[in-house]
Design a protein around this nucleic acid. Structure first.
Lengths: 192, 192
DNA sequence: TTGATTTGATAACAAATGTTATCGCAGTCC
DNA sequence: GGACTGCGATAACATTTGTTATCAAATCAA
């Protein structure tokens, strides 16, 4: 895991040593809440093993925003940045091995960010990518039927289909689990 | 307009003089296409007067992403940044007075961005805000009924209700124009 | 293994939303 | 003034999707 992070962040060895000194590793079972809706985010998580679901509650129904897998970084960015209560819950789906750094420690790295243009670019590019990701995900809601979104998911993120329980996938696609079942059986019928 | 931009960007007078030297002002009628889907974006626009609709085409139907009004900045960011064909069309809805700067000229300002931490922060914060904006807009699609989204629009962006033709509002809300009519008449009936 | 819980499929019905067609109104152009 | 056009309302009907209930299969814990 450390090597992965080392590759991701262009900084000197001593700077990375400081960074990795702040990292903590935890192993947690499935259904562990890493951050609860309403709490203020204080950590950024790096997933070594397992997967995490990001969701929020809407009158009892839960709506899934995103899934994260190995080597991905997950946090409630808005809560972390603004210090406001998180709209989102972060919850493990599988047993996970997760590294995290606290916001407090991360802030100690800010001078490094300020003084390293390359690192800054990595950071800014990540921001852009995340924004484009949300825009494109949003596009697909405007543009495509649930059936098309499901087919796209099969092609683009097969890991989601393989590892995530179906009712979470339904809530990620914005349909009821009953309707996702209909979509699947429709696909099966069409194949024949 | 220049004063507005001056306030927005923390840089020295001479730097701003360079920047404003790159700006061009145009006056265009309603329904002018500023950037067409499929073209590579080469400009960033600042709206002095009027409003602009950002939309994309999906089998003939057009889907509205966002509206921009006075003092706002509009561009196809993904196209501009990556140099790829734009997914979006930018089109005026009213007669407009618009300033723009070309990407080419803007790139000449990059050293200023690199060397001015304050300006960089403005830039990064804008990125964050835009991302949070898209996320929240997306949230509202998952969470709220079209009726609720329309009511929120009335409260939060009355300018849209007042100045934008209703079928564009419908496409922005993700419903057919017929259904938006239904929603409005439902609201009127409920008031009585 | 057994019992409990989770997950997924299906049916029947209800609600939401889209589609098509028609009408009327207001603005605009000649 | 008259014809045309764009916009919005409405009705009738079709389609999509949600809801509730039930059952079966899979998974998990004791």
């Amino acid at each position: 895991m450390l090597e992965q992070l080392r590759k991701k962040f262009p900084m000197s060895d001593s700077q990375f040593a400081e960074f990795s000194g702040y990292l903590r590793k935890i192993e947690v079972p499935a259904k562990t809440i890493l951050l609860k809706e309403g709490e203020v985010a204080k950590k950024i998580f790096f997933i070594e093993k397992g997967c995490v679901r990001v969701w929020f509650n809407n009158d009892g129904k839960d709506l899934t925003m995103q899934f994260f897998f190995e080597q991905e970084t997950v946090a409630s960015i808005e809560s972390l940045k603004k210090g406001i209560p998180s709209l989102l819950t972060l919850e493990t789906i599988e047993p996970c091995v997760i590294w995290y750094i606290s916001k407090q420690d991360l802030d100690k790295m800010l001078p490094v960010l300020e003084s390293t243009p390359e690192l800054r670019n990595v950071f800014i590019n990540n921001l852009f990518d995340r924004m484009f990701h949300y825009m494109n995900h949003f596009f697909s809601f405007l543009r495509d039927s649930p059936l098309k979104r499901y087919q796209a998911l099969i092609l683009e993120k097969p890991m989601v289909i393989q590892r995530i329980p179906q009712h979470y996938i339904a809530s990620y696609l914005g349909v009821s689990s009953v309707h996702l079942s209909r979509i699947k059986s429709q696909l099966i019928r069409e194949k024949r």
